[in-house]
Nucleic acid binder design. Structure first.
Lengths: 149, 149
DNA sequence: ATAATCTCTACTGGCTTTATAGAATTAGTC
DNA sequence: GACTAATTCTATAAAGCCAGTAGAGATTAT
């Protein structure tokens, strides 16, 4: 399960991608439109700002806007910023690799092999899908799912 | 990330699948062989027993053994027993479906669509891979990964 | 009986999640 | 310059989860 924060972050970014370029959206507007607790959203936007995804303008009529184009912000980036590693095991993580202390040999670990197969298609989707895709309703890509009837 | 408990459970089941049929393995043997805290493993085996995956014999020379064939215990079953839902969002869970209160329309939710694509291949792997596969080193199935060079 | 083992409940310490509160800072407006 | 509206930043708190520990009780073999 992804955290509520991560879901809020994605929704906020999608909302920001829809405002007219050059303008800014205020925390309270996003919060009420997306039903996110305002002060909680503040913290989330702050984290996204520290990661360089959004910019803010302070003071009266301030607000937030995307710093990078929505087509360059991937789901994977957002999830890693908010929730940390995407991988199901530390020994499969890109951003927080750690050896399992109790694992005899990483390269023959059967559990690792199974989860390596699990994480691979997950990464493909999350690293290729951007905020712009989601905002435009381009999230579904049936051609990439040939195994489903 | 899967929990440590889930990883321990998978390792314990793989260990149990390797003992001679009819016999039983003791908690302490599995614990020392797999480097799992014994009392912690006890709880895990108890949960697996309550789910009908293993059986136990109490008293002197007691121990645990698989109740179902290893080829009928899937990774998905183990993960759901120990960690709960596999799905990244409540609205995509099979065993614990819940509507997102803050979601306007589930069928047009773009975030849901993205994660629906994520979870689908994950389920395929986890529901098709069994303890027997892992124990036999059959975890890797290159034919199913045509997209990798 | 005794020793070994599982069973069951409870508990703890630390961490994470989901917020809430409030003071400080900044920027626009009158 | 004063006022107001907004973000920024730090602190805090309640709740729950995770990993592990503890110990009494039940059961079985010898």
């Amino acid at each position: 399960m992804i955290s509520r924060q991560a879901k809020y972050a994605l929704r906020a970014l999608i909302a920001l991608s829809r405002i007219t370029p050059g303008s800014a959206a205020q925390t309270s507007d996003i919060a009420s439109a997306e039903k996110i607790p305002k002060k909680f959203l503040e913290q989330i936007l702050l984290r996204l700002k520290n990661q360089g995804m959004v910019q803010s303008r302070r003071g009266n009529r301030g607000g937030y806007a995307l710093l990078k184009p929505a087509s360059e912000i991937t789901f994977a980036q957002v999830l890693r910023t908010i929730d940390g590693p995407i991988a199901p095991l530390p020994c499969l993580s890109i951003i927080a690799y750690a050896r399992c202390e109790d694992c005899k040999d990483e390269y023959t670990c059967e559990i690792r092999k199974v989860f390596a197969r699990v994480i691979e298609p997950t990464r493909q989707v999350l690293e290729r899908t951007t905020i712009a895709d989601a905002a435009a309703g381009r999230a579904i890509d049936l051609e990439s799912l040939p195994q489903m009837a």
